[in-house]
Structures are given as C-alpha cells and as structure tokens.
Design a protein around this nucleic acid. Structure first.
Lengths: 196, 196
DNA sequence: GCAAAAACATACCAACTAGTATGTTTTTGA
DNA sequence: TCAAAAACATACTAGTTGGTATGTTTTTGC
C-alpha cells in the first residue's frame, strides 16, 4: 500500500473507533488528528470536510465488514433459520470488536445522523438494504428447501429479526452487560422455531 | 400554575422538542433560549446546567408520558397479547407526536447519552425497567388467565417485543415512511399469536 | 537529476459552545 | 407599604469547533 493510502486508511480507522465510542458529532476533527498523529493539513488533504470522512467510513469500512460479518454467514448455510440464529448470536456474544456499552456502529450512526444528513442517510440505507435482501433471500430459499413454512413472509420475518437485533443493542447500552442478550437470544430461538 | 413554574415547564417542553429533532448534544442552550424566548439568566436560574435540564426532561416529561402511553394500556386489558399489539400499533401508527423520521425519544437519548453520562443512564434505565416490569407482569397474568401458553417466559417475551419496537424505530428513520412499520406489525402479530 | 505534483505541516480565524458576573425587575409576605 | 427574596435580563468570557491560507517536504515521472 502506498504511504498516502495508508495515511488515509489510518485516519478512517482511528476516526471510526472514536466515533463508535463517542458518537459522530462529539468526535472533533481535533480529536481525530490527535489520535492518528497526523496534522490538519493531512486530514483536509484526504477529505474535503468532516462529513465526507464520515460517509467514507460507512462506505469503506462498514460496508466491507457488513459483507464478511453480516452477509456471508447467511449465504451458504443449508438451514437459514439456524444461520440467522448463529449470526445474531455471534454478533452479540462472540464478536470482540462490538462492545455491549457502545452498541452497533451502523445503528448508532443511523440514530444520530440519518434525520438530518442526506449523505449519511443514503450510505446507511444502502448498507441496510443489502442485509435485508440477503436475509429475506435466505428465508425464501428455506421455504423451497422445506426448512421454513411456506406461509412465512420472508420480508416480514427479516424486518422482525433485524429490528430485534437493533433494539437489543439499545438494551445492552442500558444494562451495560451481555446478560441482557441471553433472554433475547432464547426468545429469538423460539420465534425462529415457530417459522418451521 | 405560578409564572416561574410555567417558565420552567416551557423551557423543558421546547427543549424536549428541539432535542427530539436534533439530538441532545447538537441542541445548544442558545437554541433553547431562542425558541423559548427566555434569556440565559432565566435558563440558568431554573437549571444548574444543561445536563440537569436534560435529566429533568426525562424525569418530568418522559416519565409521566411513559405512564399514560406505555404503561396504562397494558394494565386493564383482559388479553395481554392483544394489549401489547394494540400498544405497539398505537405508538407506531396513531401517535401523532412521535414522528417516523425522528424515532423514539427515549431510544434516541439512550443511544446518544447512556454510554458516557451516568445521570442520563440512570434516569433512562428507570424508565425502561418500569416498562419491562409492566409488560412482563401482563404476560404473567395472561398465563394465569389462559391467554398465554404456560411455557412462555414473560421476561424473555418482553425483551423480545421491546427490542423489536426500538429496532423498528431505527428502520423508520432510514425509510422515512411509516410503510416499514406494517410488515413489522404483521410479524409481531404472528409472533404474539405463537405465544397463545 | 530535476521540475511538477502530491502529500503533509503550521498558524491562524470566525463562529459557536456552556457557563458566569452583574445587573434589573417582579413577586412575596409581614 | 416596603424590604427581601425570587425571577429574570444583559453583557461578557474562555474554550472548542470545523475549516482555511500559506507554507514545506516528499514522491513521481520523464
């Protein structure tokens, strides 16, 4: 990787971690350049302004990680309901980057930025639509394979599961402990079994 | 009501609306006093600082509205599953204060403030625990009345439903239309029926 | 090897932030 | 009625914000 590219990537990664913990609005450009140890000149050479950097985080960091962590696990599993449960379980319990007290980065940004920044809105919507499509597709396949009842509506079920995931992330922030995830996961299991 | 009390309440209400739309951090004290048409002297006479006002909003505005809008509907209905469905439906579709593009005020504040402000954290946790207790109690009653299967775990089901509510509020922000609420509500109905 | 462009550094600024110091006006209670 | 306290008003400040103007250094391509 070229040095300039590395600088840019470094800014994005450090900024992402700060924003994940502190929120976008309360993470200042000065914060970012302090932790990355680059100067303002470098920052504004790579990004027109702070918002452009924010959108770059979504498109260049969140999007790829969505693919590997949220999409791929749903693609090649034979039983989609097991795949969905395992995915959510992994995200909530095993994933060591996502912290219970800071929630889900995509959800955080949606809450904070979507109502009044069109670029963030668009980038985050892209992200979400991809996840919806994949999960609904997996359930649709499950219907054909006999893993899922034929009268299940894939999109409805997808929206329901994803809402649950985002919502339990909110609970996690309140309780500040992964303990709250377990009753949720048990009931998710029950719900998914009711689709068989 | 005394005039001073009215001033204080006016500040709280206007500030709440601003914060609901713009977020807490990005709503400045100057914003608040501009829309309330009181001066800084009045503001800082009634509140020690901005955070104290924020917590007052939770305790003096959100808490009472929680009781009437989130708690009471769950208390005297004979069928708790119907009561839950109707509650969520009302909140999502009929409630005219809550806007799809701005989500749920309590959820917004939780996302924004909980990880790093202990007072907000505490006040919001109080709020949530009340809702959990009520909903779980209603389901527990339903088990005794035969409206709910005896092997249903009330707390698990409560966490699952509430997570779904908070999560779909996130979706609403992304889609900016109540249309997304309908598939969620349909699947919520399915899920609740599976508890019978 | 060397000019041009890319990459980065430094110093600055105007706007905004929460909060305060010091007033003036209004209300209260004896 | 009248002084004291409550309620509000005005002017200010120190710190922070995103962003820019103007440099210097490093890399690139011929």
């Amino acid at each position: 990787m070229k040095k300039a590219e590395a600088t840019r990537l470094n800014i994005l990664e450090k900024a992402f971690e700060l924003i994940y913990v502190k929120g976008y609005q309360t993470t200042s450009v000065d914060d970012i350049i302090a932790t990355t140890e680059v100067t303002k000149g470098a920052f504004y050479y790579h990004f027109k302004n702070k918002d452009e950097m924010g959108v770059a985080i979504i498109n260049e960091l969140l999007k790829p990680s969505l693919t590997t962590s949220f999409i791929d696990p749903l693609l090649n599993d034979s039983d989609p309901l097991d795949a969905i449960y395992n995915l959510i379980h992994n995200l909530l319990i095993d994933n060591e980057f996502l912290k219970v007290e800071y929630g889900c980065p995509a959800s955080n940004l949606t809450h904070e930025m979507t109502p009044w920044n069109a670029d963030f809105h668009h980038a985050l919507n892209d992200l979400t639509q991809q996840w919806i499509k994949t999960m609904a597709g997996a359930i649709e396949n499950g219907k054909r394979n006999g893993h899922v009842r034929t009268n299940v509506d894939p999109l409805q079920a997808t929206m329901f599961v994803m809402s649950g995931y985002w919502g339990i992330r909110n609970f996690g922030k309140l309780e500040n402990s992964k303990k709250v995830y377990f009753p949720f996961l048990k009931e998710l299991r029950n719900y998914l079994d009711s689709l068989r």
